[in-house]
């Protein structure tokens, strides 16, 4: 009796021999990346299951649970080391020995995400961190980060391929997996992201770029102009949203929907690029948080005030008048120097 997902029959045994085993762990995550991934169109999720990978464990969709699920993880370590692809979605909490994220029980003890990712990550063929949390920390490691959450790379001493996004675009993740399966590791940038999807800034690909160049700016969300003045993070964000777009059928993306990009794929997201509706991120000093604009305005005010007060002082004490009188009345440096020379000559004699 074939298992059915939706209306498509799943045909076990059709997988090609080269289809590598796949494990998709959910750690501290909202689940958004797995849900987004399920929306992939071509290849779709079913193509992945049928043709591309031997999907052994996907926390969100698998039917196995409890010991049965944990056993799959153990089997990977013992029977298929170096063969499987490990995908991690979410941050790895480190506080209290990682007890803030438990993926199952092993021998009556909680199997923490920290333990699972370290064990499985060491023996995987490839490790992929999907979503901004797994890749860079993201919202689940945002301040004050009570669980001491870290991105995957921080707990593994090996190459981790980062496929960020909040959530990830289905194409970015499916594309990366297909590349790994069919052609091996894709070309990565300095943040270990596949250049295929994160190779250019949104700003350079944006359909509204000519509005930016010509200073035609939206004053509030909903207007059909460049979103720069209401905090668009397109100039700081490497992703292909403007042409790949979202919503399954490649329908739209934030700027097309008249709202600024919030830079969700960025390593600094969200603490380091908030507020989303301001151009520059806030400046954090011990105990205070100020907008960059305010730092600029306060410095400018202090500079003008300082100069003004000193100028007033110089005028009132007569120093300014003295400086100019000295120069233009001939008692300046030239005269002083001549006097010095004469003095020196007369002393020598």
């Amino acid at each position: 009796m074939p298992i059915r997902i939706g209306t498509e029959p799943l045909r076990p045994g059709k997988l090609s021999r080269s289809a590598p085993p796949l494990i998709w762990l959910g750690t501290n995550t909202c689940g958004g990346d797995a849900v987004s991934f399920l929306n992939s169109l071509d290849p779709g999720y079913l193509d992945l299951l049928r043709d591309l990978a031997d999907c052994r464990y996907l926390y969100l969709t698998m039917t196995a649970e409890g010991d049965m699920a944990t056993r799959i993880l153990d089997e990977m370590l013992t029977t298929l080391p170096g063969k499987y692809i490990l995908v991690v979605e979410g941050t790895i909490p480190t506080r209290s020995n990682g007890l803030y994220s438990v993926v199952g029980m092993r021998n009556g003890e909680p199997l923490t995400a920290l333990q699972a990712v370290r064990e499985l990550g060491t023996k995987a063929r490839y490790v992929v961190a999907v979503g901004t949390c797994a890749a860079f920390g993201g919202p689940f490691a945002a301040m004050p980060n009570p669980s001491g959450s870290l991105p995957v790379q921080a707990v593994l001493d090996r190459q981790v391929i980062n496929v960020p996004g909040c959530p990830v675009n289905p194409d970015w993740m499916m594309g990366t997996l297909v590349h790994l399966i069919r052609f091996g590791e894709p070309e990565l940038d300095s943040f270990n992201r596949p250049k295929l999807f994160y190779g250019e800034t949104i700003h350079n690909l944006c359909q509204r770029r000519h509005y930016f160049d010509n200073s035609l700016f939206a004053k509030q969300p909903g207007e059909p102009w460049c979103m720069y003045q209401i905090g668009c993070k397109g100039p700081d964000t490497f992703a292909d949203c403007p042409y790949r777009q979202w919503n399954g059928e490649h329908l739209s993306w934030p700027v097309k929907a008249n709202t600024p990009c919030i830079g969700c794929v960025n390593p600094e997201f969200p603490d380091g690029n908030a507020p989303f509706f301001e151009h520059l991120p806030d400046v954090r000093l011990p105990g205070v948080r100020v907008t960059a604009d305010r730092v600029g305005a306060l410095t400018a005010a202090a500079t003008v005030l300082g100069i003004g007060v000193h100028l007033a002082g110089s005028i009132l004490t007569g120093r300014l008048a003295h400086a100019f009188k000295q120069t233009f009345s001939g008692s300046g440096a030239r005269t002083r120097l001549l006097q010095n020379l004469i003095q020196r000559f007369s002393k020598k004699r």
Partner: peptide, 26 residues
Amino acid sequence: VLAGGLGPLRKWHYLAGVAVFALSAG
């Protein structure tokens, strides 16, 4: 990567610019 992203880098460029402005004005 050293700056932790383009956003923080832009912030540092701006803040350094603010300081350069103040010193130049002085």
